[in-house]
Amino acid sequence: MARKLLRRAFILLMLIFFYLPIIYTVVFSFNSSKSLSKFESFSLKWYEKMFHSSDMVNSIYYTIAIAVLATLISTVIGTITAIGLSRSGRILRGIVEQINDMPIMNPDIVTAIGLLMFFSTLAVKKGFVTMLTAHVMFCIPYVILSVMPKLRSLDPNLLDAALDLGCTPMQALVKVIVPETVSGIISGALIAFTMSFDDFVISYFVTGNGVNNISIMVYTMSKRINPSINALSTVIIGIITVGLTVVNVIPPIVNAIKQKGKIRKEI
């Protein structure tokens, strides 16, 4: 089938287009020379350079610290708010949803300059706290958006039943609602983590005093050819790939193996 072959070839070409730059970065981070096109020999010297640069090491630390904190805070606040929204009247919900959509709809740079002016006017010292606050601000909307549908599909009688059976509202929340919506909460947390981990534009505008994340580091260092950037990039690619395999890919694979085993057992 020529048609099928053509489709496959196109998919293959597109995947090469997607992955070539990523593979290139990883491979050339181990290159012993500064060359952009010739791989001379294997070496870890760019990693050594990276770990000797306190700026680069700090940027890795800040990126992870902010992503973890922003994920925790925004997941908690987002989930609580979503539960409240599912029980509130149309007007209040409408208002909150409208405001909540703004950071998602706006281009990052618009959100970024708004926050920059806001923090500067309040004369807050720019750095870790402003960056974290900004990340929490743009992560919460995504958490709310991923928890809301789960809450909506929840049987409303469930909560009433829990209360009738003598739960306090708090117990009902923790023992009934949260466990029933946990898949939405987890996917919200995952989205929040990657949003925060990968953010450049907003972080770049609201940070200061030497607090940089990896993206800002790559941006400021990219003015000259510097293979340490490839090493730093490979670290990020590694973290994300490991994260994806542990969280996203492994369960389906495990499921598939389990199913295969079950089917074989039946034979």
Binding site: I80, T81, G84, R87, L92, V96, I99, M102, L115, I140
Partner: peptide, 22 residues
């Protein structure tokens, strides 16, 4: 459960300060 509605207010306040004002 009407009392759950109160859970929205902290975020509403936060969103007005951090999203609307900027």
């Amino acid at each position: 459960m009407k009392s759950f509605r109160k859970l929205v207010y902290p975020y509403l306040l936060w969103a007005i300060i951090m999203i609307v004002i900027p």
